[in-house]
Amino acid sequence: MIGLLLDVATTAAILFVVAAGLLITFGVLKIINFAHGGFLTVGGYAALVVTQAGGSPWLAAPAAFVAGVVLGAAVERVIVRPLYSRPLDAILATWGLGIVIVQLITLAFGRGTNFVPSPVSGAVAAFGTDYSAWRLIMLVVAVLLAAALAALLQGTRLGLEARAVIMNEELAQGLGIDSTRVRFVTFALGAGLAAFAGALITPLLSVDPLMGVPWLLNAFMLVLVSGTSLASLGLASLLLGGAQVVISTYGNPVLGALSIVVLAAVLLRIRPAGFARG
């Protein structure tokens, strides 16, 4: 039972970390970034490069974050900015970008599967059971990330401006806020978080050019049901991720793999605002 609860909590934590970048991009830019899976993959390979170059596995995630931010900044300027007025085209263009990223990575690293060493290994005793140390660390990371993002949004000028742009962009502009800049910073941050998440999941999964694809779909559905709220994302990750764990454990792993997308789709049909207020 404890094991199952830990599975639910850590699965929710991983989903939250993976989807957080997509959520803040969607919240501020109103654009679903389908290159999120690509950015995730970039993070995984950043971790691979760092560790293969002899860097500490602890450095992998921060390095991935930096790589993601730089990549995201470039992408925003060249691809996303011209498409603000055409959100559907932005989805398509970022999808194309995802393809390009996958192919570039394949050209550089090959199609093979790679493994990144984990900063910690094995299981530790926790709550009276032995449990994967890295999954527990992911739980801590998710809580810290949620706290950091909340502090950024609630406590800083940039966060205040971002919230203002989310709520009413025109009013924000009228108060002198440069919403183009807010979008730029947000997109870069969202890409950075995607890469950060990609590096963090490498100790659990292998690194290959398509590693981002399954995550992209789950993150996409979680964001759709969460709207623009971090708290809703936390709740959605816990409920839908929990459903996935329970269905996979007691039911059928195939159904488990489907549970997030199907439950989210059903929820959106019944309640288009999902877990968000409204």
Binding site: I79, P82, L83, R86, D89, L92, A93, G96, L97, I99, V100, V102, Q103, L104, T106, L107
Partner: peptide, 20 residues
């Protein structure tokens, strides 16, 4: 194989941005 996919992806982005 990969370069071809890469070219399709790049052309696609360019078309979406410049020639919707």
């Amino acid at each position: 194989p990969f370069i071809w996919q890469l070219i399709v992806g790049l052309v696609f982005i360019v078309v979406i941005v410049l020639m919707p």
